[in-house]
């Protein structure tokens, strides 16, 4: 009977993953079709098959180009970014044993914004590549500081969280200092837009890089999923269950920092996804990480693609920053889960 229950859960997960894959495909198609200039779903489909060399249908070159070069790459990067942030959130919530943990708790986003501001305001380098590089360097500088302060991330969850708070404060202060002392109004606006996140500038090379990072990170995390479960009752309990606690912590903190830094350097610090999606996924597939991590990846991907569509249609002729939309869409959704999961007393 127990194994029946286990099989039931596996079937449920498989169904859930299949269903969310279908939903994701539709979401990506919709994201590609919808925009300032709407393109029919049939045209979208034929454009993609044309580019893949499967068909040779006649489509206006402008539409083909918009679908392939602008919107599809953007939608796929959004999906990967959502998946990546959700995975990081789930990992950090487990390792730090804190339900409020999210990808930016280790100071990565604050560091990335400082790096980005150095590029935008101080003009170190130029162009979008160096913006990403600056953000990435800043993110890793912040993570290195947290690792240093928390003794290689081995000194317990609360200590690590405090180190993350310290690093975030420091880098946020640096960002504000740079913006207020040397920025003009336009630069300050650029910085703020960047901080709230945008999929505007992403292209295929971004997708390729992010795909590799997400696949590698997810593989490492799934490989360590059993060990993550063992952290349920804390570090010492995990050690007593045979988990090499210090090594797992360091590897997983490293992986989440890499993944978060990559996402943030491409599309900015998009909040809320990494906090909420793991909770929503846990609600559906349960707390065991071998199921939770793939579920998080799918839910995060769908959520981000839908949020990106919303960011383009909420206000006519304008793109609302994606970070604003994730919170606007996410909070009501999260409120429902919180309400349903409230303690029965």
């Amino acid at each position: 009977m127990a194994s029946v229950a286990s099989e039931g859960r596996t079937v449920r997960l498989a169904l859930f993953l299949c269903l969310s894959l279908i939903v994701l495909a539709f979401a990506v198609a919709a994201a590609t079709a919808i925009g300032d200039y709407n393109i029919g779903l049939g045209t979208v489909f034929l454009s993609v098959t044309n580019e893949l060399g499967l068909t040779g249908a006649e489509i206006a070159p402008i539409e083909q180009s918009v679908v392939w070069n602008l919107r599809l790459s953007r939608a796929l990067v959004a999906a990967l970014a959502g998946a990546g942030l959700a995975i990081c959130g789930a990992i950090l919530q487990a390792l730090l044993r804190n339900t409020l943990a999210e990808p930016f708790v280790l100071g990565v986003s604050a560091g990335a914004s400082t790096g980005a501001v150095c590029v935008i305001v101080l003009g170190i380098g130029a162009g979008s590549l160096s913006l990403s590089l600056g953000a990435f360097a800043g993110a890793f500088a912040a993570f290195a500081l947290v690792a240093l302060l928390s003794n290689g991330a081995t000194s317990g969850p609360n200590h690590t969280i405090l180190a993350g708070v310290a690093a975030s404060q420091l880098f946020n202060a640096l960002t504000s200092y740079i913006v207020t002392t040397s920025g003009n109004a336009q630069q300050a606006r650029d910085v703020m837009f960047w901080l709230l996140g945008s999929f505007g500038g992403v292209r295929w090379p971004d997708f390729q890089l992010l795909l590799v990072v997400v696949i590698v990170s997810l593989s490492v995390c799934i490989w360590m999923a059993r060990s993550l479960d063992a952290f349920t009752f804390g570090d010492e309990d995990a050690a007593a269950l045979g988990v090499p606690v210090a090594r797992i912590r360091l590897v997983l903190f490293g992986v989440t920092a890499l993944l978060t830094a990559t996402v943030v350097s491409m599309v900015g610090a998009i909040g809320f996804v990494g906090l909420v999606v793991p909770h929503a996924a846990r609600y559906v597939v349960g707390p065991l990480h071998l199921r939770l991590l793939p579920a998080c990846a799918m839910v995060g991907a769908v959520f981000m693609v839908v949020a990106d569509i919303a960011s383009r249609v909420i206000a006519a002729q304008q793109t609302v920053p994606i970070g604003v939309v994730t919170a606007l869409v996410g909070v009501p959704f999260f409120a429902i889960i919180l309400y349903q999961a409230r303690p029965q007393s």
């Binding site: 044993r97 360590m224 479960d229 349920t232 309990d237 269950l241 349960g286 707390p287």
Partner: peptide, 26 residues
């Protein structure tokens, strides 16, 4: 250990299954 606690919503069976961790590969 004495009274180890968790916030995670696990079942009794999930917790006992954790005991198999050292016997299982990844």
């Amino acid at each position: 250990q004495q009274s180890a606690a968790t916030d995670t919503n696990v079942t009794v069976r999930d917790v006992v299954r954790l005991g198999r961790t050292p016997h299982r590969s990844a």
